[in-house]
Amino acid sequence: MDVLEPVTDTRTTVARSHGVEVRLEGLVRAFGPTRALDDVSITVNPGELVALLGPSGSGKTTALRVLAGLERPDQGRVVIDGEDVTRVSAHRRGIGMVFQAYSLFPTMTALENVAFGLRLRRMRRPARTARAHELLELVGLGQLADRRPHQLSGGQAQRVALARALAIEPRVLLLDEPLSALDAAVRVRLREEIRRIQLELGTTTVFVTHDQEEALSIADRVAVLRAGRLEQLDTPTQIYHRPATPFVASFIGRANRIPAQMTENGRLLVLGHEIDAPTADLAPGTRHVALMRPESLTITPAPDGTGRILGLVFRGASTDVTVAWPTLPDPLVVTLAGEPTADLAPGARVEVVPRGTVLFVERAEERP
């Protein structure tokens, strides 16, 4: 994957890319009767980091493999920097790729692993050694240049893999769930490092992940996929606060599903309280399901309250309170800032009131 056009041996500093535009146009890829990609179109702007997010089987890895040239689409085009590369072989697309498995050469040092692609391009030893050192410094591993993969931690090995992909100055960087094999603390540090490096170099990047927090924290925009189709492509803020479909509202973060009814005055009746409806297209008297974030609900102790607290989960800056509600099949989840008061304990009777905005309203019989 690292074999590209020849690289001159005169460059000894890590260059900043101007970024290129990447377009996936109407991609279709079928495996038997299953369409892994079903008319997917995504544009990645120059220098942008776009995360492909979705559950297993959503098509995100297939989209990445088609972009990389490891899969051939049945229909559609892949365009990089204005060039149709759909029929161009993988090693001629100018792409660097980092996989979940580090795929480092076990008998080579970190420095030799990073310099490997440059050696294939016949860059002279002094120049490629200098460049490999610079890339290791960029990922914070300059002092570990002489270590072999078995002497590195998982996070360090993944940094070496990232440096190796960047050494060839790819037009596009592809990251295929590169952090999923690492523990939580290392994942957070490394994703921040990846974002820092990507911004510093300006390389157009596509990042595949199933981790919502990862996608929302690292990406300029997020493409949410489901069953081979693109549900929404937007900024993390828009994806979270203004989901385009019920699936996005339910998949990203958490959402309570609460029965609702449109009133004659154009408002939405939720948990016995009227709140603003997210759209004016709903007929009065019609029954719906309102999707609301846990932080859009408030909770107060009430001896004769409708709800009953089932449990609490303290998360440091917030507390999640699970509340049984007699008219709902599933408990409500309410997120409170900080610690709960002493009268909010398991078994306590409470009232839950909607105070925030409704994410999405769907017909009562619909289900994402």
Results as ranks from 00 to 15, higher is better:
Arg93Ala: 07
Arg93Gln: 09
Gly94Val: 14
Gly96Glu: 02
Met97Ala: 04
Val98Met: 02
Val98Leu: 03
Gln100Ser: 06
Ala101Ser: 14
Ser103Pro: 05
Phe105Ile: 10
Pro106Leu: 11
Thr107Met: 11
Met108Thr: 12
Thr109His: 10
Val114Gly: 05
Phe116Met: 07
Arg119Gln: 08
Arg119Glu: 09
Met123Val: 15
Arg124Val: 09
Arg124Thr: 11
Arg124His: 14
Arg124Trp: 04
Arg124Asn: 13
Arg125Glu: 06
Ala127Lys: 02
Ala132Tyr: 00
Leu135Lys: 02
Leu136Met: 15
Glu137Cys: 12
Glu137Ser: 14
Val139Lys: 00
Gln143Leu: 15
Ala145Gln: 12
Asp146Lys: 14
Arg147Trp: 04
Leu152Gln: 14
Ser153Thr: 12
Gly155Ile: 04
Gly155Phe: 05
Gly155Ser: 04
Arg159Gly: 03
Leu162Met: 10
Ala163Leu: 10
Ala165Glu: 04
Leu166Val: 04
Glu169Leu: 08
Arg171Tyr: 12
Arg171Val: 15
Val172His: 11
Leu174Lys: 03
Leu175Ala: 13
Pro178Val: 10
Leu179Arg: 09
Val188Asp: 06
Arg189His: 10
Arg189Ser: 10
Leu190Asn: 00
Glu193Pro: 01
Ile194Ser: 05
Arg195Pro: 04
Ile197Cys: 08
Gln198Ile: 08
Glu200Ser: 15
Gly202Gln: 09
Thr204Lys: 09
Val206Asn: 05
Val206His: 04
Val206Ser: 08
Val208Trp: 05
Gln212Gly: 00
Glu213Pro: 04
Glu213Arg: 05
Glu214Trp: 03
Arg221Tyr: 10
Val222Arg: 00
Leu233Glu: 00
Thr235Ala: 03
